[in-house]
Design a protein around this nucleic acid. Structure first.
Lengths: 209, 209
DNA sequence: CTGCATCACTGCAATTTTGCAGTTGCGCAA
DNA sequence: TTGCGCAACTGCAAAATTGCAGTGATGCAG
């Protein structure tokens, strides 16, 4: 039950829902960072956020997801011409990035860094979310390919599913590169770094093909 | 759907309900006092209070009641010995006062004064609530009398209902006196004034009986 | 090792809030 | 007068929140 894309200018219901979501996540993150001594309980988080324990679990399946502020990945609609050759890998990488970012609340990259520092096991959860995002992108692309005249027949004897999976994999390379080189725990994928990695990848790709 | 007696230390549900009640009342009162120019709408109040218009009407039957902060009268349980002669009228007056006060939120006597100044028609509503309170007290006393050995037979050929009604009337005298002398619109029945009136009434009563 | 407390998490029914589509009363312009 | 629009208020079904009574895992004292 995560907040949708637009935090403002929607219905009262939507606005309250994202408010509650943020209240819970903020409470959870702050308590987890502040409190060194004792275990942070769901009860404490719910109380701090001003909601019941039951409502807590209506928003987050686990306490850890609340601390991290995880939400299920969501993706924008693909433009009509998404599959039309030129720069497809690049566009897919951007898409992966967008989807990956959609699994976290915006704007608390700083706090998230501290959380990763203090609770390294959250990185595991992060990787899971990334993979869910990749899977979502794969699904979308496979569907789009099936509907696309130039792709619906597959690629050189490979199925549409295989082609979609491979494209997603290839597009994921710059991101994996980033994670490896910049350190997974640090501040989060600045756009400049992303652009850098994208350039490098393209250069390499061109040189080798 | 008014808040119950204890604003704190109850369930989360109760607490939120009184919070919402106060949010609506505060928004309504402030808007009504601040806004000279245009008509204050329910929409504006609801928006200010952060709830929907529909929820507004779950809490208050009319806009005016929201501005005034009216709630249905409520009364404490009568002690066992309530009807036992000595000082009965006095106790009933206190009960009327308690019930009368229960129809408003505590603590904004000042703002309520301003409201009465600015919107004199609210005084009509105030009188209505007073009468509802009197009626509630009458009901309680009549019920108590019917269960009481010394009263259940009525009084000197009059029915229990008649006796209860008369007692309530008599006990209401000091309060009516207060309202008349202190000006109905002004600040609200300070305890000292009430005590004064009570004393005077008792003195008069003793002298004449 | 065993009972026992604590805490994360779930299922479900009751309560509350919301959105929406009304109806009604009222002032105001054509 | 007649029609029109605004704003108070209501009925109802969908969605959100809550309380409560669980289950299961884990750690700790005896």
């Amino acid at each position: 039950m995560p907040p949708t894309d637009t935090p403002a200018s929607t219905s009262l219901r939507e606005r309250k829902k994202t408010e509650t979501w943020h209240a819970i996540h903020d409470a959870a993150a702050e308590l987890a960072l502040d409190d060194d001594t004792k275990h942070v309980t769901v009860e404490a988080i719910a109380s701090e956020a001003g909601i019941s324990q039951r409502t807590f679990f209506n928003y987050f399946p686990t306490k850890e997801d609340a601390i991290l502020g995880v939400m299920p990945p969501s993706a924008p609609e693909l433009p009509e011409d998404f599959l039309d050759e030129e720069g497809l890998i690049h566009r897919t990488t951007e898409l992966l990035l967008t989807v990956g970012r959609s699994t976290y609340a915006e704007g608390d990259a700083d706090r998230r860094s501290k959380l990763f520092e203090k609770f390294p096991h959250l990185l595991l959860r992060r990787r899971e979310m990334m993979m869910q995002g990749e899977d979502l992108v794969y699904q979308m692309i496979a569907t789009a390919m099936a509907d696309h005249p130039a792709w619906s027949g597959g690629l050189n004897g490979h199925s549409v599913e295989q082609a979609a999976r491979m494209l997603t994999m290839a597009a994921g390379v710059p991101l994996r590169y980033l994670i490896v080189t910049r350190g997974a725990a640090g501040g989060y994928l600045a756009q400049s770094s992303v652009d850098d990695a994208l350039d490098l990848y393209q250069d390499l790709y061109r040189k080798l093909s």
